[in-house]
Design a protein around this nucleic acid. Structure first.
Lengths: 267, 267
DNA sequence: GAGTGGTCTAGACCACAAT
DNA sequence: TTGTGGTCTAGACCACTCG
């Protein structure tokens, strides 16, 4: 347990919101994640006890438990009464923003993301879009279609609906825009906080086939979902269609924490 | 907020492990889930404050926070400093066991689950199976193939690998077994605690095509994953292949809680 | 300024696992 | 029996939102 240090947050240059001291339980969680990823606690190993961690960080037990609970919900460790926690895996979840942003995910995976607008229009919301964005059917939205690529190869078509208050910022973007998430955060301070994602299988339509260079009947892995801001207001309703073999998605769940739902197919 | 009562756990007949009094924070969370599902707190509504809930349940604030954190990670509510929590959705996650068990999910959705063994053999583990079960390549496992149906219609083929210590119980099961999860819990006390699931898209092979009555090239939605016991020991490695249009899966994530990973395709 | 949720402390008792 | 994690309490201070 030598590597666990409390040094974190080297406040060399407090840029923007960054330099702000992070909560202790987050730093403890991060230390443990790193220690696990570095192989200090390999799969199957026992983590230090709550008491040991509390003493090491000079923290109360509740603070340590908050950190450990985070690791538990991430599927990294398992807990049982009577024995120290056990390491389940060595590196699982990526950062939150990496799931919400194709571009951030691609970069972290060592690939070059691309995004090109095929369509940008203002029109009335369909029923699915209205439900997702929590507005009325027929209310105006910004509708976009983008082809997104990895290292130059197109792998998905993205259809998105945005609330009308985002129209100006979206229309002002260049046609080639690898990360809309980053652009909107920079331009209008839009910060994402939570999301809901549904996965199923669809056939390519004529548009998908043409944009991706595949057959009209070829299957695509579809991810649909709503992205929300911190107060729960939806900021985006998106449908991604991935080419066969281009991506997969992994989820963790446990007794005390269940983010996944199985559903009968909807429209 | 009238409906929120602390009565729960009417210990009329403490059968098996059931009558055991549940933790207060779980009962609070359950009350709130029910109140939200019943429309008492519709989408967009504000939940009672932590202080109000603490007084209502005669509980400490920390206990109330534990309950509210559960709802947050389930994607039901969002929290911001300075204002009461907001309801995001009215019913999202199902119980944990419903994701791990096809049968329990089907029943809760009002359908009749079916399961028929097509194969039960003991053989050496493939590489994928060995990694999933954390054993050596070539170690003996129990391999099963089952066709599973909903209301009589076959909708998926399930291939599973179990550790050799489960072989006796599995071989003893009848050919028609709607819920293997329930059977194993009853017979050898196997209780599941956590899981990891990966979703992608594959083409049916000859076996799938024959069992499901589809074409060899038809696409299937694949769910692969490991199910674990409370101490982290893997008890099952499973690959499900769903017929197009027969099922979809939904996930929630948020800034403080990120169960989902996006991956490049693996074998 | 009043009230909210976020963080943290310092205890306590319990159920359970290992010895 | 000892030590673990699970639960719960009763405070405290802070950052933030809202009127």
């Amino acid at each position: 347990m030598k590597k666990l240090d409390r040094t974190g947050a080297s406040s060399t240059s407090p840029r923007r919101d960054e330099g702000r001291r992070r909560p202790l339980h987050e730093r403890i969680a991060e230390d443990l994640r790193r220690a696990i990823a570095d192989g200090e606690f390999p799969r199957g190993a026992q983590l230090p006890t709550e008491a040991a961690l509390a003493e090491h960080y000079a923290a109360a037990r509740g603070t340590v438990r908050a950190a450990l609970q985070a690791l538990t919900t991430e599927g990294l460790v398992a807990a049982r009464r009577g024995t120290p926690r056990v390491v389940l895996g060595t590196s699982m979840s990526q950062s939150f923003s990496q799931l919400l942003s194709f571009a951030q995910w691609a970069i972290s995976a060592g690939h070059a993301p691309g995004g090109r607008f095929v369509e940008r229009t203002i029109r009335a919301a369909t029923e699915n879009e209205a439900i997702g964005l929590q507005i009325g059917v027929g209310d105006e939205i910004v509708h976009t279609v983008r082809v997104r690529s990895l290292d130059g190869t197109p792998i998905l078509v993205e259809r998105s609906a945005y609330p009308i208050w985002a129209s100006e910022a979206i229309m002002a973007l260049p046609v080639d825009c690898p990360s809309l998430t980053a652009a909107l955060e920079e331009r209008i301070g839009l910060v994402l906080a939570s999301g809901t994602h549904t996965f199923d299988l669809v056939r390519a339509g004529q548009l998908d086939a043409r944009l991706l260079g595949i057959d009209v009947d070829d299957p695509l892995l579809r991810r649909r979902g709503v992205i929300r801001m911190a107060d729960g207001t939806p900021s985006e309703y998106t449908e991604d269609r991935f080419v066969e073999g281009s991506a997969s998605f992994t989820v963790h769940n446990s007794v005390g924490h269940n983010p996944v739902t199985r559903d009968l197919p909807s429209s």
